[in-house]
């Protein structure tokens, strides 16, 4: 059963759908007597001014090659006239389309680019698939990526990390400074708990990952000890929707939509397909369902559009091939 208003299914005890077919997350949202103040672009500028760089680069932009992070890079360079350092990592599953988009963008914008490729995470991914853990593949990956981003920002003395997170990936100030991970939201609770448990048990066993952070909170705590740094996304503050900025980056940065993606019209790595498959199997929804549901509640996406984007139409052979690279086989 899916909520009649958003796209979340029932997942007790985290998400409960009432007799009218409305989920507990939507009902909680309705309870907000006043809608939260929408962040304004001037708030973003104020934050950028607060975290002014003393080094060569004004900000570190985490680029995945998708529309949101590519446009974030575009905004930092063109709209805010800053000197960003573009930063991408490849854990071995980055798609060719995404890498091409990033290369095109950094070339067109003339920004410095740091490309980090490593197979450091392969063993962990493989273990996640082999065990019966319900941990979401994307979670340790984002923990690792975020940790890398903070370390890189520290190395280059950059006080602002820019991500391409959408309004569906949190717009609330307290969550921004916690990377917008929102693990305490009920929609993420079970997923985050499973990831946490996996990391807790696995990290202990494997000396290779001894220093691996157990959670996003730990990433932030470590970062805080190193330097004063904030993570922001321009999309939280700008009123432009993705249709607007996709047109811009297509025209100015030769950005292309990948052939195959999930959700539709996004750019994600190959592992993402596997992660989505497992999340659907374990929870009946993915973090994309959470993001899009939030966008629906904020009036930025219609339910129909979300349902269409979330249709799973990627081939089974592709999933097998990705799992094969990790030395695993998917259950039937």
């Amino acid at each position: 059963m899916i909520c009649k208003r958003c796209v979340l299914p029932e997942h007790r005890p985290d998400i409960v759908i009432n007799e009218e077919g409305i989920c507990s997350v939507c009902l909680e949202y309705d309870k907000l007597k006043q809608p939260p103040n929408k962040p304004l672009e001037t708030d973003f500028i104020k934050l950028l001014n607060t975290y002014k760089s003393k080094g060569e680069y004004d900000c570190l932009v985490m680029c995945s090659g998708g529309k949101d992070s590519t446009s974030a890079l575009y905004y930092m360079k063109k709209r805010y006239k800053l000197n960003p350092l573009a930063f991408t990592f490849d854990h071995g599953f980055e798609t060719e389309d995404a890498v091409e988009n990033i290369r095109n963008a950094v070339e067109a914008l003339g920004v410095d680019f740091l490309f980090f490729k490593s197979d450091f995470m392969l063993e962990m991914f493989s273990e996640m698939l082999k065990t019966d853990s319900k941990a979401v593949l994307c979670h340790p990956c984002s923990i690792w990526y975020m940790d890398l981003a903070f370390k890189t920002a520290f190395r280059f003395n950059i006080p602002v990390i820019i991500a391409g997170w959408t309004k569906g990936q949190s717009t609330r100030q307290p969550l921004m400074s916690r990377c917008g991970c929102g693990v305490h939201q009920p929609e993420f609770y079970s997923m985050a708990k499973a990831t946490n448990e996996f990391l807790d048990s696995y990290v202990k066993k494997n000396p290779k990952y001894r220093d691996f952070p157990r959670s996003m909170e730990e990433v932030l705590a470590r970062a805080k000890l190193r330097q004063k740094c904030v993570v922001l996304s321009p999309h939280w503050f700008l009123p432009f929707n993705s249709e607007d900025y996709v047109e811009t980056i297509k025209k100015e940065l030769k950005w292309k939509l990948p052939g195959l993606s999930y959700p539709a019209n996004s750019t994600n790595c190959y592992l993402n397909f596997l992660s989505v498959h497992n999340s659907m199997k374990n929870y009946g929804y993915t973090h994309y369902h959470v993001e899009m549901s939030k966008l629906i509640r904020e009036g930025l996406l219609s339910r129909q559009e979300a349902l269409k984007s979330l249709e799973m139409n990627f081939p089974r052979e592709m999933l097998d091939s990705i799992a094969g690279k990790l030395g695993c086989r998917l259950d039937e």
Binding site: K4, R5, N241, I296, R297, G299, L300, L301, S302, R303, Q304, E305
Partner: peptide, 10 residues
């Protein structure tokens, strides 16, 4: 945008 708002209000 308007259509989304209407749809989301059911």
């Amino acid at each position: 945008y308007i259509k989304r708002v209407i749809l989301n209000r059911g």
